[in-house]
Nucleic acid binder design. Structure first.
Length: 879
RNA sequence: GCCGGGAUGGCGGAAUCGGUAGACGCACUCGACUCAAAAUCGAGCGGUUAGCAGCCAUGGGGGUUCGAGUCCCCCUCCCGGCACCA
């Protein structure tokens, strides 16, 4: 198709697309302006600037662009901004690899990415572009950090932290997945370090509660956040240790089972371990503690983890019944959660049961299991037994009573615990925001005064200077860290760590509302106009990290009076990935078994070394013969640079066209599903847009001559049908876009195009037809803006996006006839077209005239009839 | 194990206030146009049937209902997340 000569009036995307892209720049389409009317803030997750983009990157941006254009047509003030999450490791790694500075590398990539976006016709308000690695942006990271410090929400703490040996830096809990660094994949080690934390735990309850105020968030994401926050309600109370002053404090969600606490378990790191361990047990305990410390997170979380532990020799007193119970240490109790110590109730807890069995400890049931209970620990509800004053009470009642008893006796109280930990934000890396703090020997920690912000990240001349060495690279640069103490004036030292780059993305959506502000991160008034974000679109991989941190920052900024909104994102949409056909490598087939000849891609895609032809087929894979005669294994896989299966934006748009790419993406599958980019899908999009083009181009002259004025109530026949279908489509497309059902919106457009062809075949160009074409272009515009703008300009002088989205004529939707479905005993036996105003009696008569219905009524007795007006008649028979 | 989401033609998917299952597209088949091909246009396209009628059909089993892809119960499988959090 690319070989054809361009003819006048032939759909030629390469010619018309650049023209309209330039035009939109000129007219300032999607330049955001605060107004007085309704607003719409459409946001896509900003990317790490990685250079050339492929269709996988472009899916969200295309979706956001459709929405932003649609809202513009509807007359909203629209904010559709873009920016770059530009700090972080890839820039450092690239610098080390190619010897360019991280800044040059980053800005080079930004330039390339921008070109891809422009080629797709995606319109942003570039005057609000945000790049997080610029001092103009990260100055405000430092400002917010100081505000948090003032409120006691930023603090320094020495603790065992997650150390990523590849990144040579610490990580936050959220960035450790299955015991590995989220980016490097390296096994995380534990190191005791003093670091900066943000007190997100102060917001745990609000972060949890307010999830209920987000109906337009996916249930999946809310569930993940709830689990991460991990609220549990119970009690915290003390067990005295025999022969010691010290008491062991425990947290339990089941204080009602206290009578069944037959032993206690401390985490190996628990501070009382050295104190209470008896001389006889000292050696064993110390060996166990040392071993536990050596174990990596992954080893401790192994699936088949068998319970291990050591007796300390000490005994505690169960405050409920005065029994002496042994105190053990074991690594199934975590130091970082609750108090790092538990009362073990094997009768009601599976883990404690397992431990008790293994070490021969006593088991006492305190909740009566149902009759015939064969299991081990019983964790469900039931009446209390062996529990003194709690006997007979069910779990909830028993909890209340025992907590009251504890409070009265002064040994404990009700308590809520969260799994969420404070956010560790120090990083020992170069390419990030310097932490605006000064360490003074005399004054201690002194914040950099606001007027001295930003603390500028120095440009390091030698690439070797930025190589991670286990300490911040900035610590090797006295010209950076040597500073006078702002308080006492004596020589002091700057903090040389940088901030976690997730700080940058925790508030960037606020900077867009006022990107040029020199006095503040943003002007509250402007932010209040735009916030909250009406529709946020991005990948589900940020369900916890970025989305939780952003909610935290928003709440904090609300609390200090910067913002009315308490939640940043009103609507959240997590889009599915784009897959491309991928050559996994050469294979040989023997006895129906496929064996891979090269391991790299097979391993990357998690495929087994051999699989049967049938299994391969089932999984959607194909075997293709290459030119050299070898057999290769192909399957769809998420587009990525490393697999080389990405369809690159630049070449595709230059060869085929942006609108074709957009329709391909939007129509192929529901946006939340993964989609497979195929040549056939592209063909379909091309065919569709050509059909649109021809429908308008073939009648161009006549359409130009025809007025589209007509009296809608006076229409008849084909005109009336077309008019009705138009308004049905308008309604459907509008609703579908708002619900982000782009695939069905495009389907409705295709359907209506078929109707336009049908009409035109039988009828001439009429006012109704002309009006339908005009509205068709308006509906097409958000999806395929270039072709729509081109065809629109054949009949109009201004942009299609300046024309208001047409109102649905509700009266036109009311048909004057409908197709009656006639069922006999619930099965469809016939259909008839009947006038809308037909009475029920008439309907019954008409239904009985249908021969096939008669046949099915023959010799049967009518029991009852159900009539659904405008739809169906069901005649129920007996015999 | 727990939590969230799914299972509909050869394929992507429509249809969920219970009311014609398979919109729209892809692939495929036949026909028209053409010297020919591409493009385009027309017809067909769940199974069974020569075709109609009929019957079967939305992962499986049961139920509610005049009527179930849609609601309820049980089960299987798939995807995603969490996983010794007391």
């Amino acid at each position: 198709m690319t070989l054809e000569k361009p003819m006048p009036d032939k759909y030629n995307p390469h010619e018309l697309e650049p023209k309209w892209q330039k035009y939109w720049q000129e007219i300032g389409l999607l330049r955001a302006a605060e107004g007085s009317g309704k607003k719409s803030y459409i946001l896509v997750m900003f990317p790490y600037p990685s250079g050339d983009l492929h269709m996988g990157h472009l899916k969200n941006y295309t979706m956001g662009d459709v929405l932003a254009r649609f809202r513009t047509q509807q007359g909203y003030s629209v904010l559709h901004p873009f920016g770059w999450d530009a700090f972080g490791l890839p820039a450092e790694n690239a610098a080390l690899k190619f010897g360019v500075s991280p800044a040059d590398w980053t800005f080079g990539n930004i330039q390339q990415s921008k070109e891809s976006l422009a080629l797709m016709g995606i319109q942003y308000d570039w005057s609000r572009e945000v790049t997080t690695c610029t001092p103009e942006y990260y100055k405000w990271n430092q400002w917010i950090f100081l505000k948090m410090y003032e409120r006691g929400l930023a603090y320094r703490k020495k603790s065992y932290v997650n150390w990523d040996p590849v990144e040579q830096s610490v990580l936050a809990n959220e960035q450790v997945i299955d015991g590995r660094g989220w980016r490097s994949g390296a096994l995380v080690e534990k190191r005791e370090l003093e670091q900066w934390y943000l007190k997100i735990t102060d917001y745990a309850e609000r972060l949890l509660q307010d999830l209920d105020k987000l109906p337009r968030w996916p249930e999946k994401v809310k569930a993940m956040q709830r689990a991460w926050i991990g609220k549990s309600t119970g009690a915290e109370f003390d067990f005295p240790v025999k022969g010691h002053e010290a008491k062991i404090r425990v947290f339990s969600t089941r204080p009602d089972t206290i009578f069944g606490a037959t032993f206690m378990v401390l985490a190996p790191e628990h501070e009382l371990v050295p104190t209470i361990t008896t001389p006889e047990q000292k050696e064993a305990v110390e060996a166990y503690v040392a071993a536990a410390r050596m174990k990596s997170e992954v080893e401790r979380q192994r699936e088949d983890r068998e319970k291990t532990g050591v007796f300390t020799g000490a005994y505690a007193i169960n405050p409920a019944n005065g029994k002496e119970i042994p105190v053990w240490i074991a690594d199934y109790v975590l130091a970082g959660y609750g108090t790092g110590a538990i009362m073990a109730v094997p009768g009601q807890d599976g883990r404690d049961w397992e431990f008790a069995e293994r070490f021969g400890l006593e088991i006492v049931r305190t909740v009566e299991p149902p009759a015939g209970w064969q299991g081990q620990a019983y964790t469900e509800d039931g009446p209390a037994i062996n529990s003194g004053f709690l006997d007979g009470l069910y779990v909830e009642e028993a909890k209340k009573k025992v907590i009251a008893w504890m409070e009265e006796k002064g040994i404990g109280q009700g308590k809520v615990n969260y799994r969420l930990r404070d956010w560790l934000i120090s990083r020992q890396r170069y390419w990030g925001t310097p932490i605006p703090m000064i360490h003074c020997e005399a004054c201690g920690i002194v914040p950099v005064p606001y007027e001295e912000l930003p603390v500028v990240l120095p440009t390091l001349k030698d690439v070797e200077d930025i190589r991670p060495k286990g300490k911040s690279p900035l610590a090797a640069h006295p010209e950076f860290y040597e500073v006078d103490c702002p308080r006492c004036g004596r020589a002091a030292r700057r903090d040389t760590d940088t901030m976690d780059t997730f700080i940058d993305s925790s508030w960037y959506f606020l900077r867009y509302t006022d990107a040029q502000n020199q006095q503040l991160p943003f002007d509250p008034q402007r932010a209040n106009f735009w916030m909250p974000v009406d529709q946020y679109i991005g990948g589900v991989e940020h369900a916890i990290l970025h989305l939780l941190y952003s909610r935290f920052f928003t709440k904090f900024l609300h609390d200090i009076g910067m913002l009315e909104a308490e939640e940043p994102f009103e609507g959240l949409f997590t889009q599915g990935m784009v897959q491309g056909w991928t050559d996994v490598g050469p294979v040989e087939v023997k006895d129906d078994q496929i064996r891979f000849l090269t391991p790299e891609r097979r391993a990357k895609l998690d495929l087994p070394e051999t699989l049967s032809v049938e299994e391969a087929k089932k999984s959607g894979a194909e075997l293709r013969t290459h030119e050299d005669g070898s057999l290769h294994f192909w399957k769809p896989a998420t587009m990525s640079k490393s697999l080389g299966n990405g369809v690159m934006v630049g070449p595709f748009v230059r060869e085929q066209g942006a609108d074709i790419a957009r329709i391909t993406i939007l129509f192929a599958a529901p946006p939340e599903n993964e989609m497979i980019w195929t040549e056939e899908g592209v063909q379909g999009a091309w065919r569709y847009l050509n059909r649109v083009w021809r429908r308008v181009a073939e009648d161009r002259a006549e359409l130009e001559r025809t007025s589209d004025r007509f009296e809608s109530t006076a229409l008849e026949g084909a005109d009336k049908t077309l008019y009705q279908k138009l308004h049905q489509t308008l309604k459907k497309v509008g609703e579908d876009i708002e619900a982000l059902r782009f695939n069905t919106a495009v389907a409705a457009l295709m359907e209506f195009l078929n109707a336009l062809y049908d009409y035109r075949k039988e009828n001439g160009v009429s006012p109704v037809y002309r009006s339908a074409i005009r509205h068709y272009l308006q509906m097409l515009a958000p999806f395929a803006p270039h072709i729509a703008e081109e065809l629109w300009h054949w009949f109009h002088d201004s942009s299609v996006f300046e024309a208001r989205w047409p109102a649905v004529d509700e009266e036109a939707l009311v048909a004057d006839a409908f197709e009656l479905v006639v069922q006999v005993s619930g099965k469809v036996r016939g259909k008839a077209t009947v006038p809308a105003q037909a009475s029920e009696d008439e309907i019954r008569r008409i239904a009985r005239e249908i021969p096939n219905v008669q046949a099915h009524l023959e010799g049967k007795q009518v029991v009852k009839e159900i009539y659904v007006p405008g739809k169906l008649l069901n005649i129920v028979v007996k015999g």
